[in-house]
Computed example of a mutant assay.
Amino acid sequence: MPKKLIKKYMPSPESIKEHKHLTFLGDKLHDPNLWHLNRRSVAAAFAVGLFVAWIPTPGQMIISAIIALYFRANLPISVALVWVTNPLTMPPMFYFAYRFGLWILNMPSPDADFEFSLESVTTGISDIGGPFLMGCLVLGIISSLIGYFGIRLFWRWHVVKQWRERAER
């Protein structure tokens, strides 16, 4: 059962409430809905975590925690899911976001005659910023929708399967 597997690896609410980087959230961490494992809270956590994973900024875990508080999503799962972007996956994900942004904005690919100098790097950053951020935004929205509805469907499928197995016994 997904609920048992998630509970096995999830930290206790007390350890997260006492975490030094989350103390600024105060009593909001005591909301029991942030710690429940049900279809709604886990699906919302997947939506939050996968969306924030595409935000190209440091502090993704804090951003995810704040958004999870607002949507009353499962806090540990939403914070853990931002680690989809880690030092190994970040370069290919963000390169794909840039290429996807170029496609969305219908922009041509830049010249392959890139020469490494301070001027070309600063010019290049301004050229890639728009497509990169657009790609990250759209891919974040797509990922969060797939995560949300995928978890809801998987959870429903699993519950129906258990009902059928129980009825057969």
Score class of each variant (00 low, 15 high):
E14K: 13
M90A: 14
I77K: 00
L75F: 12
G147M: 12
K28V: 02
K20H: 08
S41P: 01
A68S: 15
I77G: 00
G26A: 12
W157R: 14
R39L: 10
R39E: 13
D113S: 15
K4N: 09
P110C: 05
S78T: 09
K17I: 08
F132S: 11
I16T: 06
G59D: 09
A73I: 03
E119N: 14
V48G: 04
I128L: 14
S78G: 12
D127I: 11
G130P: 06
N86V: 01
D113E: 15
R164H: 05
L69Q: 10
A68W: 02
P58K: 04
L137E: 09
N86P: 02
L50T: 05
F51G: 04
N74H: 07
L105A: 13
A45T: 06
M134T: 15
L133G: 00
H19P: 08
H158W: 07
I6K: 11
S12F: 06
M10W: 00
R40S: 07
I55A: 13
R72W: 04
M10H: 03
I77V: 13
D113C: 08
E165M: 09
L34S: 02
E115N: 12
F96H: 03
K161E: 12
A68N: 08
F51P: 00
I142F: 15
A167D: 14
T123G: 13
D31Y: 06
K161H: 11
L145I: 14
P76C: 11
W54I: 08
P92A: 01
P87Q: 04
T123H: 15
L29N: 02
V159Y: 02
S117P: 03
S117I: 05
Y148E: 02
R164P: 00
W157M: 14
P131W: 07
P131D: 09
V160C: 06
H36N: 10
G124F: 14
K8H: 08
K8M: 06
S41W: 03
H36Q: 11
N86G: 11
E115G: 13
S78R: 00
G140Q: 11
W163V: 12
P110I: 13
A47D: 01
R72G: 06
N74W: 04
D31S: 07
S64R: 01
D27P: 06
D31T: 11
R156C: 03
S12I: 05
S12W: 02
R99T: 05
D27G: 15
Q60K: 01
Y148M: 04
W54C: 11
Q162T: 00
E14A: 15
G135K: 10
P13R: 04
H21L: 14
F46W: 10
F149D: 08
G135D: 12
N33I: 05
F96Q: 03
L75E: 08
Y95T: 12
L50F: 15
W83H: 04
L25V: 06
M107N: 05
I125Q: 08
Y98D: 04
R156V: 08
I62Q: 04
P87H: 05
G129R: 15
T23N: 10
V138G: 10
P13W: 01
L145P: 02
